[in-house]
Design a protein around this nucleic acid. Sequence first.
DNA 1: GTCCTGGAAC
DNA 2: GTTCCCGGAC
Length: 226
Amino acid sequence: MRKVSKKEDSYPSLRQIKFFRKLLLNWFSKNGRKFPWRGSRISNYNRIIAEILLQRTKAEIVKQHYNEFLEVYPDWKSIANASNRELGKVLRPLGLWRKRSITLKKLAVIIDKSGGKFPKDVKALEFLPGIGQYISNSIMLFYFKNRSPLLDVNVARLLSRYFGISCKEDLRFDLQMQCLAREIVNCDETITVNLAMIDYASLICKNKSAICSTCLLRKNCSFYDK
DNA sequence: GTCCTGGAAC
DNA sequence: GTTCCCGGAC
């Protein structure tokens, strides 16, 4: 394995992107992870709660406490009526519970007043408490059915390694990486491609101990030492 | 010690 | 732009 060189940055062609997408979709159909917040029948409330719980938190950990959270807080109103202390109690095992209980309650009050509706453009979404670039894209993807990318640190690592493109420390300012992610998910299976990248980065293209030996993508991967 | 489907205060 | 939040897994 070698480090990604900044000098070799070159934007991938559409053909390369299609190939990458196809292999990932094929892999995902057999190896994708199952989580209670995935699937087309999940309510928007349940889905957005999952996104908030997943901030900087391992999906496997969220899975252990997700249903309990939904039992205690089944809708926006129940969160809006809860005290920060009560919320923190349920959020504690997930970490980041002080901030999350404060911002989640602020958000719940706003969304409850709006009748459960979210604003339909990215900038307005990012203005909401606890909603930044990632979750606003997630809402645009799942709630409004846009072709939006879910670009987290793991997906960025996968793209950076495979396409040999360096990425910035803070993805919020990395327009090149955002643009690439957006192009990759710009197809008829936007949601599945997004989930496939997240799972592949988590299970195969790990930060440390990447499993290059069994990686389907290694033939064309700039990170793989042939 | 580092890392995780980020966001906001500083 | 940088730092902190947070617990649990590794």
